[in-house]
Simulated assay, not measured.
Amino acid sequence: MKLTSNAEHWQLDRLIMCHAIAAIIGASMIWPVTAELWLNISSAVFFLLNGSLLWNESWAVLWAALNTKTYDVLGAVLMFLPTIWYIFAGSDHDLKERIARTSVTWGTVIIVVFMSKILLPSIDFHSPTLVLKPVVYLNELVPWIDAKWESKNSFPGDHAVAAFSFVGMVFLLLNKKTGILTLIFGILYSVPRLFSGAHWLSDELVGGGMALFIALGWMSNLPTLVWSRYIWSWIFSRLPKRG
């Protein structure tokens, strides 16, 4: 199934296929065989990353700072910056086309994150800090920083939902250079919760993977970009003409 950013019409069969893949990824959290595999892998990753907080004080302070609400905002801004750069410095399309593509990228990610907040907040899935032992508690190790270290509804990882869908859309709609920069910032945005133990690795990979296929499904199989072009053409046509 080839994904393209130039869908001119609704392609419901391919759209359903993307949602089916997302559903299969999500089902891996509840099918006993894969659920046990995810638990083992995620537990091993948690003990490795969370245990590293005892290496030294500077290392612990770093990850405490990266698990604050302040960094949540900063990390999101950094992840969006490459797309701002693309609008004003990109050369693969004209300005109107770059704005149309970027606005679809932003809009799709906002919708996906909003849907995850509305549809999935009732899932009772505790973070590893509330389930596993031994645990290094960031709030005790670095008490002067208000770091997020636990969650009673850890699935899906909200940072991963935003990062996976955003990076996927950037690679599909913008260009490789912008995609690589966004990928780097997306990783920096998602990883901190694994060190603090507020999320399992499966929260990030499964939740993010579902968001990725849903976002790409909509963009690749609906004429979303066509609609965006019409809207921005209408806006540009009403701007004052120069000289």
Rank of each mutant, 00 (worst) to 15 (best):
M1R: 12
K2V: 12
K2M: 11
L3V: 05
S5H: 07
E8L: 03
W10P: 03
W10I: 09
W10S: 08
L12I: 15
D13L: 03
D13V: 06
R14N: 12
R14D: 11
C18K: 00
A22P: 02
A22T: 03
A22D: 03
A23I: 13
I24N: 07
G26L: 09
M29H: 07
I30H: 06
I30R: 10
P32G: 10
V33D: 12
V33F: 10
A35W: 07
W38I: 04
V45L: 14
L48Q: 15
G51L: 13
W55D: 00
N56W: 06
S58D: 14
A60I: 00
V61D: 03
A64E: 09
K69Q: 13
T70Y: 04
Y71C: 02
Y71A: 06
V77W: 01
L78S: 13
F80S: 12
L81G: 07
T83M: 15
S91R: 15
D92W: 13
L95G: 05
L95Q: 07
L95M: 13
I99G: 01
A100I: 00
T102F: 04
W106L: 13
G107M: 07
G107W: 06
V109N: 12
F114I: 07
S116V: 00
S116M: 01
K117S: 13
L119I: 15
L119Y: 14
D124L: 14
H126G: 06
P128M: 10
L130V: 01
L130W: 00
L132W: 09
V135P: 08
N139F: 06
N139G: 00
V142N: 08
W144M: 02
I145V: 15
S154L: 00
P156C: 01
H159I: 04
A160I: 02
V161E: 14
V161R: 09
F164S: 12
F164H: 00
F164M: 02
F166L: 15
F166W: 14
G168Q: 11
M169N: 14
M169D: 08
M169Q: 13
F171Q: 11
L173C: 05
K177H: 04
G179Q: 02
T182W: 09
I184T: 00
F185D: 03
I187E: 02
I187F: 11
I187L: 15
V191K: 01
P192E: 07
R193F: 00
R193K: 11
F195C: 15
F195A: 05
S202H: 14
D203M: 05
E204C: 12
E204F: 06
G207A: 00
G208P: 05
M210W: 06
F213C: 09
A215E: 05
A215W: 01
A215Q: 05
G217Y: 09
W218P: 04
W218F: 14
W218Q: 12
T224D: 01
L225C: 04
L225H: 05
V226N: 11
W227R: 07
S228L: 01
R229P: 03
R229Q: 13
R229K: 14
Y230R: 14
Y230L: 08
I231H: 01
W234H: 10
W234S: 11
W234Y: 08
I235A: 07
I235K: 01
F236E: 08
S237F: 04
S237Q: 08
R238Q: 10
L239T: 10
P240M: 06
P240F: 13
K241E: 08
G243C: 01
